[in-house]
Design a protein around this nucleic acid. Structure first.
Length: 506
RNA sequence: GGCGCUAUCGUCUAGGGGUUAGGACGUCAGAUUCUCAAUCUGAAAACCCGGGUUCGAUUCCCGGUAGCGCUACCA
């Protein structure tokens, strides 16, 4: 089969939105599945809105998502340059060619004039499309007017007829030329217009499949008209459905987190987002498996299994995937994944628990103990600091003033359990998980209390909270943490229990 | 207004002329755990409406409705 070349062509006008991220992902998966090329092209023809700093943000976002490209603005390639702003001559050349062959013409109408006509047409209930007035201006006259300094745009004469293509996801699709006005190729500023630049670029970059949002469906016939005028064979088109917010309108900022940057800050793992996004509009061959590694995604991805209908973005489901991938993190991953390590460090530095440098024993404790004990219960990693409160914040006085914790301590029998436990625990120089277990066994024998009656008061005395991870894991976490040079001191079990004794007047 | 796209549990989806309409998230219940989370088991939950074709339509066709998109010298 001929080689697959696909592209992701964002304009640098802000952060990368999930909708675009999904488009990028589908292109990438398709390219990787077919061992083809994935090309990144920057569509910065809109000088007003494009900003250079957005471009580097954009590349960072895509890298974070785990997508890599074979050709792009930062790495070049045989079909560059990869910024439309650097391809001006090309567009100019073909605009002139189309004018010379009579397929395009100069248009001297001003935007104000066009807007007025548009409004008038709308009010009269007519189709608001360009009248084609400037088609009648002879070329030599147009040249003369331009020479005298008059600004002109270039328009394509849309040939009449039906424009049809076989969309890879929608099947046979067609539009009549009647609904299209002569489209702008070059703006009077000399900048190419989107539909023109896209066609030129896709052709010269030898794009085989254009996989993009279905908001481009009605642009497709215009582009087809251009391919026809230029005598070029168009690529295959695949139009992906829109991603909607919970209210079924197009997903946007007002729906909350929608940019890759947002998700990164929330502590969504890129593999979770990739997996979730892949399932928005695409489904695996067996129709059932949802947790899929990137390798499996690449192996199974096919344009045949794409749905046409729009999808509502469900953050709860994203969280479920994120929980899954967080629970898969194990000790070794921190050695491999510097980005994950840096994220966790920064997060805890930001809340004032830690300070840099973080290395040696502290790093070990942080990743191999604290993280692995606390992370499995979070939806997103930015909840880690709140979970870590059990480690860093212990205040016996406050605990005795709060209803839920105080009630546990004041339950009948609780003091008996606590007295026995505390005297034994304080006799130890350091409490290990094993010693903790042994001591609670002894307390159980002596007091006859077990289960909830036994552990609940101990949990409250040791953590100041009524729920949390297993005590057997927390105890050594506290003990080890207490010996580390942390910005915020972690109280040892002994410190906690003495403070508790005083506050509870035991 | 015109043109186009879309329509299966609350949500993401599988499926397809005859099925107990499958899976996942969420929800609810139970099990387990010192607690929460996790985990396991189970339950409730869907073919937009109206015509047509057919022995039989949720599936195919037409129409309606609704949602979304385009209708720019934005992309």
């Amino acid at each position: 089969m001929s080689s697959v070349r696909v592209r992701f062509a964002p304009s640098p006008t802000g952060y990368v939105h999930v909708g675009n991220a999904r488009t990028a992902l589908f292109n990438w998966l398709f390219a990787r599945h077919h061992q083809g090329q994935f090309i990144l092209r920057i569509e910065d023809t809109d000088v007003e809105r494009s900003r250079a700093e957005y471009e580097s943000q954009l590349l960072d976002d895509l890298r974070w998502l785990g997508l890599d490209w074979d050709e792009g603005p930062d790495k070049g390639g045989a079909h560059g340059p990869y910024r439309q702003s650097e391809r001006r001559e090309l567009y100019g050349k073909f605009a002139r060619q189309l004018i010379e062959t009579g397929q395009a013409y100069y248009c001297f109408c001003t935007p104000e004039q066009l807007e007025a006509e548009r409004q008038a047409a709308l009010e009269a209930g007519r189709q608001p499309k360009y009248s084609g007035r400037c088609r009648a201006i002879p070329l030599h006259e147009a040249e003369r007017r331009r020479a005298s300094g008059e600004a002109a745009a270039v328009r394509l004469k849309i040939p009449e007829g039906i424009y049809r293509w076989r969309d890879v996801v929608h099947g046979e699709t067609s539009f009549s030329s009647e609904v299209m006005g002569d489209l702008i190729l070059m703006r009077s500023s000399g900048q190419p217009a989107y539909n023109f630049a896209v066609v030129i670029d896709d052709y010269f970059m030898q794009i085989s499949h254009v996989i993009r949002g279905d908001d481009h469906i009605s642009n497709t016939p215009r582009q087809l008209a251009l391919y026809r005028a230029l005598g070029w064979t168009p690529p295959q088109f695949a139009h992906l459905s829109t991603i909607l917010g919970p209210d079924r309108t197009r997903l946007s900022k007002r729906h909350g987190a929608t940019s890759l940057e947002n998700f990164r800050q929330m502590g969504i793992l890129p593999e979770a987002l990739r997996n979730y996004l892949a399932l928005l509009g695409w489904s695996p061959a067996d129709g059932k498996t949802e947790i899929l590694s990137t390798e499996q995604l690449i192996a199974q991805f096919s344009l045949d299994h794409i749905t046409k209908s729009p999808a509502v973005f469900d953050i709860k489901k994203l969280y479920a995937f994120n929980r899954h991938y967080i629970s898969q993190i194990n000790v070794g991953d921190f050695d491999r994944d510097a980005a994950l390590r840096a994220w966790v460090e920064q997060h805890l530095v930001d809340v004032g628990y830690l300070e840099r440098p973080i290395n040696g024993k502290l790093s070990e404790w942080l990743f191999k103990k604290l993280f692995l004990i606390l992370a499995p219960s979070v939806d997103r990693l930015d909840e880690l600091s709140a979970r870590a409160s059990v480690v860093f914040n212990y205040d016996a006085q406050a605990m005795m003033e709060r209803g839920p914790t105080r009630d546990v301590v004041e339950q009948p029998g609780a003091r008996q359990v606590l007295q026995a436990f505390i005297s034994k625990a304080l006799a130890e120089t350091e409490l290990s998980g094993e010693r903790f277990r042994a001591i609670t066994k002894e307390v159980q024998k002596e007091t006859g209390k077990k289960g909830k009656e036994l552990f609940h008061p101990i949990r409250v005395a040791l953590t100041g909270q009524v729920s949390g991870p297993e005590l057997e894991k927390l105890v050594p976490l506290f003990e080890e943490g207490s010996k580390l040079p942390l910005k915020k001191h972690v109280k040892s079990c002994a410190e906690r229990l003495r403070e508790f004794q005083a506050a509870a007047k035991l």
